[in-house]
Amino acid sequence: MRERGAGGEAGQRAVDALAAEASAKAIRGVAPEAPSPGFAAIDWSKPWFAPFAARGQRWQQAALTGYADLLAEMNADAAQMRQTTGRGQRLAFIAQDDLPSGAAYEAHIASTGCVPTRHNLHDFFNGSMWFAFPRIKAALNARQSAALDALGVGPTRGGVRDMLTLFDENALLFACADPALSAALRGFDWQTLLVGRRDAWGRSCEVRCFGHALLEKLITPFKGCTGHAWIVDVPAAYFEWDAAARDAWLDEAVSAALLGIDALTSRLFAPLPVLGIPGWWPGNESPAFYDDAAVFRAGRRKR
């Protein structure tokens, strides 16, 4: 069911078809589809959403208008950015129903460049990451499609694909210039990381949300919401750069790691409760916030 080498043509067909559909509806006076529940609930002032707000607000308005409008907005950005997927195919977004029957999702993206997308928050945030961290998304897609080529779809994903899926769905990028802070995260030393060295946040370490399922959960944040932190060692100068330069550096470094590490396992992550990140939740201004052992656990290494 794969159409290798057809990504650019398929992407342009998707854009043209969506534009034609939107125009036809306008001419006929057809009312837009009812918005998917949740789009209106995105609060772009929240620190986990704020880095993606510029594009996200445009997409949000399109999503509230209708499914075709969202796909058209996403494809307009894709055409301008000329982004590619894991095997160099031009990125485009298609309706979920356009995924051929029996086709594997990641393999279809790799071979055609077309990302099947539903009218929901989960796929909205997934699409956002193709622009926020394009190299990371392409690296994940390349590894996933290579694993599918080698092992097929099968009843289970296997260890490597499980890890890649976990990254895609739930990862946090923990950028850190101080090895002591990275060690505290790996060692579940919450008092050092989040209380004693609180002043280091923004100067020696910071977090970017990446996982699209995690972003979806953070529409209605709760204390136990935990991401899988991927620790990225950054130079001290990193914290002197603007946000765009930081994101570009992370995109390059993390994508290279994902493509270069043979033994990808979930042990490479460190759990990090999102609402415990300094500055991300008003309640964590009090040190007592971190006394909740059900959330800030001692962890397997302590046990």
Rank of each mutant, 00 (worst) to 15 (best):
L99S: 06
A24I: 10
A62E: 09
T156I: 04
E169Y: 06
G66F: 00
V30D: 15
A72I: 04
K223P: 07
P47I: 09
L151K: 15
P134I: 12
Q61G: 12
G88S: 08
G202I: 05
Q144L: 09
I136D: 12
T85M: 07
R246W: 07
N126P: 08
C225Q: 11
A139T: 01
D292G: 03
T220I: 08
A79P: 06
R197Y: 05
I42L: 15
A298G: 13
L264H: 06
L214Y: 11
T165L: 09
W48G: 14
A243G: 02
W280S: 00
A22P: 08
Y67C: 00
T65C: 06
A95S: 14
A22F: 02
P51M: 03
L194Q: 05
L250I: 00
L250R: 00
A40Y: 13
M74Q: 09
R87A: 13
W59L: 15
A76I: 03
A229Y: 02
V195K: 10
A200N: 04
G202W: 04
A79E: 11
G7D: 05
G202M: 08
D123N: 04
P179V: 02
L151F: 15
A139M: 01
I109R: 10
H122W: 01
R82W: 03
D69G: 00
V115H: 02
L268Y: 11
Q191P: 01
H228G: 00
V30S: 15
K223R: 13
L250F: 01
L151N: 15
E9Y: 03
D97E: 15
G211W: 05
A150G: 02
A41K: 15
A213S: 14
A245P: 00
A103L: 04
A31R: 13
T265F: 01
G5A: 04
P235S: 08
F222T: 13
E285K: 07
I261Q: 13
S45W: 12
R203I: 02
T192I: 00
G11Y: 01
R55Q: 06
D291E: 14
S111C: 04
V160E: 12
E206T: 14
D199E: 14
C225P: 00
A177M: 00
Q80R: 12
H122A: 02
G276I: 14
G202S: 10
P278Y: 10
D292H: 09
G202K: 05
D251E: 04
Q61N: 11
H108N: 06
Y290H: 13
P287A: 08
R198D: 05
A54E: 15
A14C: 12
F125L: 09
F49M: 13
E252C: 00
V232M: 11
G202H: 08
D69C: 01
A175G: 10
L194Y: 09
M81I: 04
G158M: 03
A248L: 03
L71P: 06
A175I: 11
G88T: 10
A110L: 11
I261H: 09
V254N: 01
D149C: 02
V232C: 10
T265Y: 03
P116V: 02
P47M: 10
P273Y: 14
D233R: 05
S255F: 05
A50F: 14
E240A: 15
F125C: 11
F93N: 05
L264S: 07
E240S: 14
D149Q: 08
